[in-house]
Deep mutational scan, measured.
Amino acid sequence: EWCEALHSFTAETSDDLSFKRGDRIQILERLDSDWCRGRLQDREGIFPAVFVRPCP
């Protein structure tokens, strides 16, 4: 499952995944309604679900 970043997100901890608006992120797991775990290029981490939308 893939999503597109609606806003940029800067990691606040070593577990977070930083990304820029427009990045396509592979969703690996939905942790709960607020957080997802994903992969961007060679990095993995968690990020807020409200920062992304599903890719068509």
Results as ranks from 00 to 15, higher is better:
Asp34Trp: 08
Arg43Lys: 11
Ser18Met: 04
Phe51Pro: 00
Leu17Cys: 00
Gly38Thr: 00
Asp34Arg: 12
Arg43Met: 07
Asp15Met: 12
Leu40Tyr: 06
Gly38Met: 04
Arg43Ala: 11
Cys36Ser: 07
Arg30Ile: 06
Ile25Cys: 00
Leu6Phe: 15
Glu29Trp: 04
Ile25Lys: 01
Arg39Ser: 08
Leu40Gln: 06
Phe47Met: 07
Ala5Glu: 03
Leu31Lys: 12
Glu29Gln: 11
Phe9Asn: 11
Asp32Pro: 10
Trp35Gly: 01
Gly45Leu: 04
Glu44Cys: 11
Leu17Lys: 04
Ser8Phe: 03
Leu28Ile: 13
Gly38Glu: 02
Asp23Ile: 02
Trp2Leu: 04
Cys55Pro: 08
Asp15Lys: 14
Glu4Gln: 07
Gln26Pro: 00
Cys55Thr: 10
Pro54Val: 08
Ala5Pro: 01
Pro54Arg: 08
Asp15Ser: 13
His7Glu: 15
Ile46Phe: 14
Gln41His: 13
Phe9Leu: 08
Leu28Pro: 08
Gln26Ala: 07
Phe19Ala: 04
Lys20Gln: 14
Phe9Ser: 05
Arg30Val: 11
Val50Cys: 12
Val52Tyr: 04
Phe51Gln: 06
Trp35Asp: 04
Phe19Asp: 03
Val50Thr: 14
Ser8Leu: 02
Ser18Cys: 06
Leu28Tyr: 06
Pro48Lys: 10
Asp15Ala: 14
Glu12Cys: 12
Lys20Tyr: 04
Glu4Pro: 06
Phe51Cys: 12
Arg39Cys: 09
Gly22Glu: 01
Arg43Ile: 05
Leu31Phe: 10
Pro48Glu: 01
Ser14Thr: 13
Phe9Gln: 06
Ala49Trp: 12
Arg24Lys: 15
Ser33Gly: 15
Gln26Val: 05
Cys3Val: 13
Cys55Ile: 10
Glu29His: 05
Cys3Gly: 09
Ser14Tyr: 08
Phe9Cys: 11
Glu29Asp: 10
Asp16Leu: 14
Ala5Cys: 05
Cys36Thr: 07
Ala49Gln: 09
Arg30Gln: 15
Phe9Pro: 02
Gly45Cys: 02
Asp16Trp: 12
Leu17Pro: 01
Ala11His: 04
Arg30Ser: 07
Asp34Pro: 05
Cys36Arg: 04
Ser18Gly: 09
Asp23Tyr: 02
Arg30Trp: 14
Gln41Arg: 13
Ala5Trp: 02
Pro54Leu: 12
Ile25Asn: 03
Asp16Glu: 14
Ser14Cys: 10
Asp23Thr: 04
Asp16Phe: 15
Glu12Thr: 14
Cys3Ser: 04
Phe9Ile: 06
Ala49Asp: 06
Asp42Met: 03
Val52Leu: 05
Asp23Met: 03
Gln41Ala: 11
Glu29Tyr: 06
Leu6Met: 07
Pro56Ala: 07
Pro48Phe: 08
Arg30Thr: 08
Leu28Met: 10
Val52Gly: 03
Gln26Trp: 08
Ser33Trp: 10
Gln41Met: 10
Gly38Gln: 01
Leu17Ile: 03
Glu4Trp: 03
Ile27Gly: 01
Arg30Gly: 05
Asp34Met: 10
Cys36Trp: 15
Ser14Met: 13
Ile46Tyr: 09
Ser18Tyr: 04
Cys55Val: 14
Asp15Arg: 13
Ser18Ile: 07
Leu31Gly: 06
Ile27Lys: 04
Gly45Arg: 02
Asp16Gln: 15
Arg37Pro: 02
Leu40His: 11
Glu12Arg: 15
Pro54Ala: 10
Ser14Leu: 10
Ser33Val: 10
Arg39Glu: 03
Asp32His: 05
Phe47Ala: 00
Ser8Pro: 11
Arg24Trp: 07
Gly38Cys: 03
Asp42Asn: 11
Gly22Met: 07
Asp16Thr: 15
Arg30Ala: 06
Val52Pro: 01
Glu4Met: 07
Ser33Leu: 06
Asp15Gly: 11
Glu29Leu: 03
Asp34Gly: 14
Arg39Asp: 02
Asp23Val: 02
Gln26Tyr: 06
Asp16Ala: 13
Gly45Gln: 01
Asp16Ser: 15
His7Phe: 12
Pro48Thr: 00
Gly22Phe: 02
Arg43Asp: 10
Asp42Ala: 08
Cys55Lys: 07
Gly38Trp: 01
Leu28Cys: 07
Glu44Thr: 06
Ala11Arg: 06
Arg24Glu: 06
Gln26Ser: 02
Glu29Arg: 07
Asp34Asn: 14
Ser18Thr: 10
Asp32Val: 02
Gly22Thr: 00
Ala11Val: 02
Trp2Asn: 05
Cys3Gln: 01
Glu12Trp: 07
Phe9Arg: 15
Cys55Arg: 07
